[in-house]
Write a protein that binds this DNA or RNA. Structure first.
Lengths: 82, 82
DNA sequence: CAAATATATCGACTTTTCTCGATATGTGAA
DNA sequence: TTCACATATCGAGAAAAGTCGATATATTTG
């Protein structure tokens, strides 16, 4: 999912109309993941709590997009601490 | 354990006599970890299979040391793929 | 070879994580 | 306000990971 969100345009073409400013909505990710709605929702919320993605509620949809700084921080953490 | 193995001299002073060319032996790591011998042994073998540490058998002892290239590779993998 | 020491492996149990269906919450449209 | 849709949360069962004691293997010493 994290890799998918790197290039929303290519990985979620169904969502072109809505744009990608706030990321991709849960339904699109769920369809692509092939898991149930509840599983995907919970997984996304875990990633959000961990800081790797951010969510934006727009009407009835929740959009998720990557927080690149978290990935840089993780990479640096591995370099320095591990 | 992986962090301990970054600085064997400071983290495993009991082993000075044997030297650290091949790393630290299982018994020292176990004592410091506070886990049973079997748990530590299995854990180390998992880390070895994953490529993060290397083992050298010297007599009845098995020494483990870090494989730094694996950590660099992981950091780069996160940078590029994730 | 027998005993002692160091490590590895095995089987069982416990804990955690994964995944789901059911249900609750929130939003927009009629 | 009622219905339909999108997402979140909850509780339970399944799968995986963690941990242990017992035992096996390997090595050194007497």
């Amino acid at each position: 999912m994290l890799e998918w969100l790197k290039e929303p345009e290519t990985n979620f073409p169904e969502q072109i109309t809505a744009g990608f400013e706030h990321g991709v909505c849960v339904g699109q990710i769920q369809a692509k993941a092939g898991l149930t709605q509840s599983t995907v929702s919970e997984y996304l919320s875990i990633l959000q709590r961990a800081g790797f993605i951010e969510s934006t509620r727009v009407g009835q949809w929740t959009y998720y997009k990557r927080n690149e700084s978290a990935f840089e921080a993780l990479s640096k953490l591995i370099q320095s601490n591990l």
